[in-house]
């Protein structure tokens, strides 16, 4: 597809890889919102990103931010701010980038799945949950107008192996924060440091409306696991989700009320969809009959 015309999506800061993914001798050649792009480390040490044409020739240079271990770019002229995560400054935390998993579905479906506690015991059996402890306790999901973010708080769930550093099951407390249609952060009870939260972040790179790459990181207090072990744990979780996501139909996220049946555990998902609707985002969203016709015309 060609570059999207969705003004909201165009003016987001979007991930396109880890800092290590674009080097002098090996650029990262990829796509964003239907636009081919190329990222490479330039002579002055900074990362440059350009739009490219079908032959791979560089066109317009894009604004770049190197933050949180990743490369962010925007295709728009008036981008909303990238999220702030002050936890990155806290001593004792460790940043481990996970890399990405490519998924043939709407980027919005990947974010929504990340917000869903209900699938833990079924999809992530013995990792993030297990039968018969499948109950999702009541929690609170809201749009915080002051910061323009979606939050879910007071989430609680019994988990076998809530994090790599957990040896026994524990009742995990969760908070979810959605700062962009394509970015969400999970704050999770730290198994080894009472009162602290571990962070698991998801940055979804929208390649096309129905194709994306899910990049992620963890920022825990953890002294016993190696980076590689933390990576493998998170990659396992994402690879368990992937076939489920690719089988969700339609691939584009429906925002019309009543299209999919909500359960109580889906409160965060419903709030996320409501927030997307308010933003008039169309990228990755199922088109209604009228707009489908106009697209064909």
């Amino acid at each position: 597809m060609a570059k999207t015309t969705d003004a909201f999506a165009l003016n987001e800061w979007l991930v396109i890889g880890r800092l290590e993914d674009a080097t002098h001798d090996k650029p990262r050649v990829t796509r964003l919102l239907g636009q081919d792009i190329r990222a490479e480390r330039t002579a002055d040490g900074a990362i440059g990103v350009w739009e490219t044409d079908l032959a791979g020739n560089k066109g317009r240079a894009l604004p770049v931010q190197e933050r949180y271990g990743h490369i962010f770019v925007t295709l728009g002229d008036t981008p909303r701010d990238l999220l702030e995560m002050p936890e990155f400054e806290e001593e004792g935390r460790r940043l481990v980038t996970i890399g990405y998993v490519r998924v043939k579905t709407s980027p919005l479906r990947v974010v929504e799945n990340f917000l869903d506690l209900g699938h833990f015991p079924y999809v992530h059996t013995n990792y993030l949950g297990a039968e018969p402890q499948t109950e999702v306790a009541n929690y609170k999901a809201e749009i915080r107008e002051d910061v323009d973010e979606v939050w879910a708080t007071d989430c609680s769930f019994f988990q076998q192996k809530a994090a790599k550093s957990a040896t026994d099951g524990q009742q995990s407390e969760y908070e979810y924060r959605v700062t962009s249609p394509f970015i969400t952060v999970l704050y999770k009870t730290c198994p080894i440091k009472p009162g602290a939260w571990d962070l698991v972040g998801l940055f979804v790179q929208p390649l096309d409306e129905d194709l994306c790459e899910a990049h992620s990181f963890v920022l825990p207090f953890d002294e016993e696991n190696t980076d590689v072990e933390l990576r493998h744990f998170q990659q396992t979780i994402f690879l368990q989700d992937r076939p489920i996501l690719e089988n969700q139909l339609p691939a584009l996220l429906p925002l019309t009320p009543g299209t999919e049946m909500p359960a109580r555990a889906d409160a965060t998902s419903m709030t996320y969809r409501r927030w997307l609707k308010k933003k008039n985002i169309t990228f990755g969203v199922q088109k209604d009959a009228a707009s489908t016709n106009s697209r064909a015309a």
Binding site: D21, G99, V228, R231
Partner: peptide, 10 residues
């Protein structure tokens, strides 16, 4: 012995 096949290419 976990080997960082991806993304580390260990």
């Amino acid at each position: 012995v976990p080997v960082d096949f991806y993304p580390g290419l260990e």
